[in-house]
């Protein structure tokens, strides 16, 4: 698939990638419930991550030539892009640290959680990424209305995810005796989901800002760095969940 496409093929590429991701997620789920194979989970997560980074986050754009004129907008966008990716790299270390803590403290066991709910919120987040991609693509092709609708859907789904984790999953888990102070399992669970939820929250704020600015007509097909940044950040949050979901819900025996 090449990168310079017309709008409809870009859209259908988004759909295709989404289908891959959805299938892989289901695969992951069934692997986990039928037999205990950490290696498969790791491989699947890595493939999903690669798909998201390439097709949704457009990592290849880092390589794009933005000319020599340091004062041109293209050059500045190129600079911003590097800045954003470095920020994500830095942020990734927090999540990697949380993963390390989880592996060290829980090993090949996992807390008792509601599997269906986990799958549901994962699906919601994945779908939101799909719509985010659609929104960004629309803007890149000057379709402001498409951008607005798709991003609004993303926002609602994101809110749904946040609600699912914080307002449904947390109380459910606590009711089952998994509280922050009940032991390491609880500590790890709440800290990982909490840090992720915090990022979701900031991603939603970012999206609101972008929506508002779009409403004011700040962005155009040529100049929409804010939209791109919000999208890449949102996909990054999804990327983190791609690893956190198996780490919390799927890997290992029940405690």
């Amino acid at each position: 698939m090449s990168h310079t496409q017309d709008k409809s093929s870009a859209f259908s590429q988004g759909v295709l990638v989404f289908v891959y991701l959805a299938v892989l997620t289901l695969l992951e789920y069934f692997v986990a419930v039928t037999f205990n194979a950490v290696s498969i989970l790791v491989v699947v997560a890595v493939i999903k991550a690669a798909l998201v980074m390439y097709y949704y986050m457009h990592i290849y754009k880092l390589n794009e030539d933005s000319g020599d004129d340091q004062h041109s907008d293209a050059y500045k966008t190129g600079t911003n892009r590097i800045g954003l990716w470095l920020f994500l790299l830095s942020d990734a270390f927090v999540f990697a640290g949380l993963m390390t803590a989880r592996i060290n403290l829980l090993g090949l066991t996992r807390p008792h959680l509601n599997q269906l709910l986990g799958l549901a919120v994962t699906a919601v987040l994945l779908i939101s990424s799909f719509f985010m991609n659609r929104g960004e693509t629309a803007m890149a092709h000057g379709d402001k209305k498409g951008f607005f609708i798709n991003t609004l859907i993303t926002f609602v789904l994101g809110l749904g995810f946040l609600f699912g984790v914080v307002a449904v999953e947390w109380p459910l888990a606590a009711a089952e005796g998994l509280t922050p102070s009940s032991g390491v399992a609880g500590a790890v669970f709440y800290m990982m989901t909490g840090m992720h939820a915090f990022h979701v929250f900031t991603g939603l704020l970012f999206m609101l800002v972008v929506l508002n600015n779009a409403r004011k007509g700040v962005y155009s097909a040529e100049k929409h760095w804010g939209v791109e940044a919000a999208a890449v950040y949102w996909h990054f949050i999804d990327l983190v969940w791609i690893f956190f979901y198996p780490a919390l819900y799927l890997i290992g025996k029940l405690l």
């Binding site: 403290l105 102070s181 032991g183 390491v184 609880g186 500590a187 800290m191």
Partner: peptide
């Protein structure tokens, strides 16, 4: 919050 990351009594 009493999270037990480094508290041996809680498995930390």
């Amino acid at each position: 919050l009493g999270m037990g990351f480094f508290d041996p009594a809680k498995g930390g």
